[in-house]
Design a protein around this nucleic acid. Structure first.
Length: 621
DNA sequence: TGGAGGACTTGGGGTCACTATC
DNA sequence: GATAGTGACCCCAAGTCCTCCA
């Protein structure tokens, strides 16, 4: 692990201040505070007899260290460390398990081949997973049905297995109706108890304190494992991570944890291994927590460092297009795509285990087409592939001649399903990037290009003369430019057409209202001209104000319609949450007097509390 | 050195609760 | 009070990148 010395030094040189909230300065009322530097001492007064001592010792003697972050000790003095300690003290209540299966009431029947059939509890539970999804497209997909049926049969008794041999003959509709009508039990009240933990004196919100319930795996795209049974997680599957000196969470009576460990070099509280892919799942802290906030801040600082050397890197990869070595040319062309098109790195994937999706390094020959000329443009590359979450990436872009020629070279004598960059993978690329800049990986380009685009677009689109709704439209347009760059798509909402129609009706009505109001104003003016008295003058003023008000309302509606239409298939949330340095948005709000609530909702404000604290209107990414 | 596993971020969709409208 | 529409929040899958070990 890298020493933090260099980082701290660099940050000092660059003039980065540590965000205010990252300092360890306990305040009261942390429970409702958007900041999270509040001490638990005040709220947990009763429990504090025991915890208090630890808190006190922590406050006095410890710093709050985090991997790669500036460390502060009480008094604000920075201290560097070699360790990768992420927390000093961690206490939590453990996870909340999915409620046990309750057999269906006897009036809810399952039919096989038109006849009522009573299922064993094990088989019935798995059947209910399918029944609950009956209205979903998944249950019409062959792979889903095949996987489900195979796993369902494993839960059946020998008798059931012999009888139930064809999924088509199964009728789950009564079960489906039953679940639709059922009142959903509310576990929100568990939140204050299980939804929080104590980490380094701070009461922190936990992101996902509930264990994922059993069900059918919903893989995306053409996932070969969709429909498989996600088994129930039991205490014996759970690894608890907490402080040695904390009050360990208790497993449910009569059970035990798989393991209790005290690893303060990781940030998770609970983990278990899921049975579909064999991957590990975690319970971690909410994005508003200090540990996540620091990481987020670091991410944007790395992207800002890239800004300083991006020209050098671009010059270098342009040079590398001419390299004698194929691997260097491939690396340089791939990097050009990552930089220009904000493509993801594209790790290798195990064939047949997941949906067939690719990123830059894993592009295949079949994913691009080359056009020496297309629609009056030279050297056009057409990309068409499925990216993360099987979202289609389609783009036709003119590229530089050397890139085009190189691509022709890379594609020579290859089959459509051969790798385009056969001498490259993400670890080779990232190793190279690491040499160009400390901490640089392919992902950083996406963050950098997203943030810099937002900043540029905001400068370009914001008009000082415009009112707040128009400025917010500009913001959304800038956000949209980033979402398009990053290919963040969404399925148009089901109610989209209808709601657009309703909005249009409102606009039409408002227009009519406006023309009525104008007509009234005109006649009031004429009246005032004849009568020349105070009363009629006043009437003119009133009518004028009415026209103005309606004009504003109409504009608001029109802006709303434009915004919604332009947003039909674009998802803004992902870029806002993960790629755009929040300080750009905060600075923009401050500069133009826009309430930050118009840009960020409550959750987002909590996540970006550090940026709201830090950024003034002059902030430059 | 490279492959596997682990830790963490990113991502779209689903659900729910709140608000507006009738 | 019922209903429709919507945004916020939750869920958990699917990525990226790092570490560890043979």
């Amino acid at each position: 692990m890298k020493s933090l010395d260099g980082k701290v030094k660099k940050e000092k040189e660059n003039g980065f201040a540590s965000p205010q909230h990252m300092k360890s300065e306990p305040e009261d009322d942390f429970y409702h505070s958007p900041k999270y530097e509040n001490c638990v001492f005040y709220v947990y007064f009763i429990e504090a007899l025991r915890i208090g001592l630890i808190i006190f010792l922590n406050l006095v003697y410890s710093d709050f260290s985090s991997d790669g972050c500036i460390l502060l000790i009480p008094g604000g003095k920075r201290r560097d460390t070699q360790t990768v300690v992420k927390w000093k003290f961690l206490e939590h209540k453990g996870p909340v398990f999915a409620p046990p299966y309750e057999p269906l009431p006897s009036n809810v029947k399952f039919y096989y081949d038109g006849k009522v059939m009573r299922l064993s509890p094990e088989a019935e539970e798995v059947a209910t997973f399918f029944a609950k999804m009956l209205d979903h497209e998944y249950t019409t997909k062959d792979i889903f049905r095949k996987n489900f049926f195979k796993d369902w049969r494993k839960e059946m008794t020998a008798e059931e297995k012999a009888k139930i041999t064809d999924l088509k003959k199964c009728n789950f509709s009564e079960m489906n109706e039953f679940f639709k009508a059922q009142w959903r039990s509310d576990v929100v009240f568990l939140c204050p108890e299980y939804g929080f933990c104590i980490m380094d004196n701070h009461r922190e919100r936990i992101a996902n304190f509930r264990i994922e319930p059993p069900g059918l795996f919903r893989g995306r795209g053409d996932h070969p494992k969709m429909g498989m049974l996600k088994r129930r997680i039991r205490p014996e599957d759970i690894i608890i991570n907490c402080s040695k000196d904390s009050k360990h969470p208790e497993p449910p009576p009569g059970t035990r944890w798989k393991e209790v460990r005290h690893d303060n070099k990781v940030t998770w509280l609970v983990s278990w291994t899921e049975n579909i892919q064999g991957s590990i799942k975690y319970i971690m802290l909410n994005p508003s927590s200090r540990i996540k906030g620091e990481k987020d801040w670091q991410k944007y600082e790395t992207a800002r460092r890239l800004k300083k050397c991006v020209d050098r890197i671009r010059n270098q990869y342009r040079e590398d297009w001419k390299s004698k070595e194929m691997r260097i040319r491939q690396r340089a062309v791939a990097l050009y795509f990552i930089d220009k098109l904000a493509l993801r790195a594209g790790n290798e994937k195990e064939e047949g285990e997941t949906a067939d999706t690719v990123g830059c390094c894993s592009l295949r020959v079949e994913h691009i087409k080359l056009y020496p000329e297309n629609d009056g443009q030279e050297y056009v590359v057409e990309f068409d592939f499925l990216g993360k979450d099987s979202i289609r990436y389609y783009n036709k872009v003119p590229v530089e001649k050397r890139v085009f020629k190189n691509l022709q070279l890379f594609m020579e004598n290859k089959e459509p399903d051969d790798d385009l960059f056969d001498r490259l993978n993400t670890s080779i690329l990232n190793k190279h990037l690491q040499e160009l800049m400390d901490g640089l990986t392919a992902k950083v380009f996406r963050t950098y290009n997203a943030s810099i685009t937002l900043q540029q677009q905001l400068k370009e689109l914001t008009n000082a003369e415009e009112n707040i709704p128009a400025k917010i439209l500009s913001y959304n347009r800038a956000n949209r430019a980033v979402a398009i760059l990053c290919n963040h798509q969404r399925a148009p909402p089901k109610t989209f057409e209808k709601s657009m129609q309703n909005l249009q009706t409102k606009i039409d009505a408002k227009r009519e209202q406006l023309s009525d109001a104008k007509r009234e104003l005109k006649s009031a003016k004429a009246d005032a001209k004849v009568r020349k008295d105070e009363k009629s003058k006043k009437a003119v003023e009133t009518k004028k104000k009415a026209v103005q008000r309606i004009e504003e309302q109409l504009m608001k509606l029109e802006v709303q319609a434009t915004d919604r239409e332009e947003n039909k298939q674009i998802a803004l949330g992902t870029s806002k949450l993960n790629y755009l340095d929040p300080r750009i948005s905060v600075a923009w709000c401050k500069k133009w007097g826009i309430p930050v609530e118009k840009i960020y909702n409550k959750t987002q404000r909590e996540k970006f509390a550090w940026a709201i604290d830090m950024a003034d209107e002059d902030f430059e990414f």
